[in-house]
Each structure stands twice: as C-alpha cells, then as structure tokens.
C-alpha cells in the first residue's frame, strides 16, 4: 500500500512539476515513559490530537494512562481527568507519581453525556497539556452512541489548543478521528505467594496501517 502511494505521488509530482503541497503535519509526541509503549507508538502519544487506549477491565489501561499522567505532571503540565463513572483513585495515582495538585478531576458520577460536555469545555478553555476522558466503565452501548461528530469536535479542539486528548474506553469508538489507537489485552495476573504482584498485558498499536504489539507488566 505504502509503495503504491509513493509511486502515485512521484507520478503526480513529475506531471505537474511541483511537489505536492499537502503533507501530513508531524505531530509533537509526548513520551509515555514506558519504553516498550514508546517504541510501539513511535515515540509516545501525539500532542494536539486524539488517542484511544482501549481494552477490557483489568487489561492495564489505567496503569498506562496513569504513567502518562505522571510524566505530564512531572513536566509541570496541567492535566484534566474527566471521569465518566467516578472511578479515579487518587491514592493509586499518587503511588505512580502523579502530582495531584496539577490534576483537575471531574467526577461525572456515571453520566457519559456530562463527561463529553465537560471535556469539551475544558479542552476549549486551553492551557491543559493532557486531557483524559475516562469512559472505561461506561457500558459499550452508551459509548457507541457517542456520535462521530462529537469526536471530530473534540479532536479539532485538541488541535487548536495543542492538548493531548486521551480517551480510555473498552473498545475503539472514535475510529478515524483518533490519531493513535492502542488496544490492550490482558495476559494474566502475577501472583507471588499470597500477594497479587502485578498484571501482564499486551498492547497493540494501529498506526498508518501498521499493527505492532508489545508486552509489559504493571507491578504492584
């Protein structure tokens, strides 16, 4: 596919004697701080765009996003966590190294519509480096009802304000609106003696028709 596009491009440029004006703008990438994920995503999550991190319960989605959040607050960025189901655990976030003073938490108490409105208001306000929309516990049926236009609107707002918008979901909902999709799959818990010591997960990234996988363990 890539070779065909390249050939077509060369032919058009030769015919019209000018390079094609349209080029995909290279987005700034924010490293997640987890080496395997950074390799998987070619450097991290894109700033000024929408990324989706999805997977079933206990697949390590929250561990990954908390790591990204921790890195962002460590850089001194202001972050917002819009929590549709109200499941954000401040103690877990603090353990990962998230500076809670730089996180605005919006607990929508199970109302996904309110979460969408809140994320829209906050991202339009500007100044946030990372905005997380947590739909991880929103039922599939409800999440699927979010119109594509809403995702486009959020992506456009993120482009305008330069924020990295990350959606945590059970499945991919924004489809073509998102620049990066990371699907998480649980491989299994790590038990040591009488303790739950971690969770091994597999992450799969789809970007520009390339599918890559990586495995990592969230430890406790």
């Amino acid at each position: 596919m890539g070779a065909a596009i390249l050939r077509l491009r060369t032919e058009i440029e030769a015919r019209f004697e000018t390079p094609l004006a349209f080029r995909r703008r290279e987005a700034e990438l924010i490293p997640t701080g987890i080496e395997v994920i950074d390799r998987l995503t070619d450097g991290g999550i894109p700033r000024g765009n929408l990324s989706e991190i999805c997977g079933p319960e206990s697949s390590g989605r929250t561990a990954l996003v908390f790591a990204i959040l921790g890195q962002a607050t460590r850089r001194g960025e202001c972050c917002a966590w819009i929590d549709a189901a109200g499941v954000f655990d401040p103690a877990s976030a603090a353990e990962v190294g998230v500076d809670l003073e730089r996180v605005l938490w919006v607990n929508c108490g199970g109302n996904a519509e309110h979460a969408l409105k809140a994320v829209d208001l906050l991202i339009q306000a500007g100044g946030f480096g990372l905005v997380v929309l947590d739909l991880g516990d929103t039922p599939d049926k409800e999440a699927r009802r979010i119109p594509l236009a809403s995702w486009f609107r959020l992506r456009h707002a993120a482009e305008r304000t330069g924020a990295a918008l990350v959606a945590v979901e059970r499945q991919v909902n924004a489809r073509s609106c998102s620049a990066l999709q990371v699907e998480m799959r649980r491989k299994g818990p790590v038990w040591v003696g009488k303790l739950l010591r971690g969770l091994t997960t597999q992450a799969e990234s789809q970007r520009l028709y390339r599918v890559r996988t990586a495995e990592f363990t969230a430890v406790r």
Binding site: T32, G33, I34, E35, E57, G60, T62, A63, L64, F66, A67, I68, G70, Q71, V87, F88, D89, A91, S92, A93, E95, V96, G97, G136, D137, L196, G198, L199, F216, T217, A218, V219, R220
Partner: peptide, 10 residues
C-alpha cells in the same frame, strides 16, 4: 522512566 503500577478503579 515512568512507573507502571497496577491501579485500582474504585
């Protein structure tokens, strides 16, 4: 290097 910890969704 980020710390990747198992988190609780409460």
């Amino acid at each position: 290097q980020a710390k990747c910890s198992l988190c609780l969704r409460r």
